[in-house]
Write a protein that binds this DNA or RNA. Structure first.
Lengths: 227, 227
DNA sequence: CGCTGACTTGAACGATGTGCAAGAGCCCTC
DNA sequence: GAGGGCTCTTGCACATCGTTCAAGTCAGCG
């Protein structure tokens, strides 16, 4: 082995850094090469192609999640913790949503996470079928939420990079406002002093929706708690 | 005006067709030009750039949705209809998820839809704040579900286009299977005869999750029904 | 020392988004 | 009906990107 050869792991780490900083359209092989102090094409010896690299990065961030003990706490808090951690992961790595919408992903990291989620619901007394549904529903909800986060992250990046973007955004917001004024319920929200708060509180919405979803699952699947 | 000039509307329609058929990475200006029997760059007179075109397409498909009467039926069925129609829209246009994860979208079509969703929940007796949360939660859930649909659509496209893809998929599935065998709950699902059913029934999962979410919202927001 | 196999490099190709200058078609006016 | 001025189209060109490939470099083993 040459002195300081590239590692697949090193490459994946660098790719994640780039993805986090620049988004998925900011990741390109030449920039990656520069960050690794090597030619862009050197990466191709370690990784099949860019798509594959992105998939490796995707599974990597999944493995970084810590999993709550399914036995100790009540299942609601374990489930909430998992969902919140997932949500945090998507916020840290907004590009993930785009990857998950474009590729069917199934690697070690996701398997580990899925299995643990099933464990949480089964420990709560759900049947394995019900645990499947609960896992899928909660994951789905968190992922949907992440799409909004990702879109905002992309917008913020544009605002930071392009000095003219701020002006354009103001125009776009005015146009959106004008459109909204044509619809009674949207207009009412714009005219309420709470309008400023409304746009600024997506977190509360995440929690409320998650709570409601868990309530619904609890009620829908009568459990016979283990032990 | 020249005889058969391009129309913005015509362009957007062609773009949607291309997006539906080839996915978001299949849409490129030269292919679009060919479909319109014009030079690729002719489009730029009608549309600022590709991103903008995609945004126009996005809002266009939103406008195609039909909205249920919020007054007549009980709110559950109105809400379910809206969610199901939205889900169907995402299935017809899988690229939408990727767009929504990359851009903050707000146009006429989405405004109309949002307003109507608020109407449904407000007619059910939710306060405007609760209607906001319900609208956001349900939309989020449907969008998250669509990510899975989109990923599958992309995979199917690859299978149709690339004859070697089938082999690769088989390899990937074997590897996934091997990984899953290392986790007790995933393994149990693979070993159950229901395993085949499990993967094939995402629709049921959508409905269950949606039902649970609505249950939870209903329970969480005690309503004083109008009239 | 030289061979082999692991890795890196640079040049190059094809695809893609987009700017630009020149053209084409239509209508209006003199 | 000739010219001027719109509106719209075209072809060319450039920059950027993913990726291939042949040629290089280097470590260690015989």
């Amino acid at each position: 082995m040459p002195r300081d050869a590239l590692t697949r792991d090193q490459i994946v780490r660098a790719a994640i850094e780039l993805l986090d900083a620049e988004g998925i359209e900011g990741l390109n092989m030449r920039a990656l090469g520069k960050r690794l102090n090597s030619a862009a094409t050197a990466v191709y010896w370690h990784v099949k192609n860019k798509d594959n690299l992105v998939l490796l990065a995707t599974d990597r961030v999944w493995s970084d999640l810590t999993l709550p003990d399914p036995a100790v706490d009540d299942w609601r808090s374990a489930a909430t913790t998992m969902a919140t951690d997932l949500h945090a992961m998507f916020t840290r790595h907004p590009w993930l949503v785009q990857v998950l919408a474009a590729h069917v992903v199934y690697g070690e990291g996701k398997a580990r996470h899925d299995d643990h989620s099933l464990a949480v619901y089964e420990a709560a007394g759900f049947t394995s079928d019900q645990a499947d549904q609960a896992t899928a529903a909660v994951f789905t909800y968190v992922l949907g939420n992440a799409a909004g986060t990702a879109a905002n992250a992309s917008l913020n990046r544009k605002l930071n990079e392009d000095p003219a973007a701020e002006e354009q955004l103001k125009d776009a917001m005015n146009k959106a406002r004008e459109i909204a004024m044509g619809y009674p319920r949207l207009r009412a929200r714009l005219e309420t002093p709470a309008a400023a708060t409304y746009a600024a509180a997506p977190d509360r919405t995440f929690e409320t929706g998650l709570g409601a979803l868990l309530d619904g699952l609890e009620q829908r699947f009568p459990r016979t708690p283990k032990q």
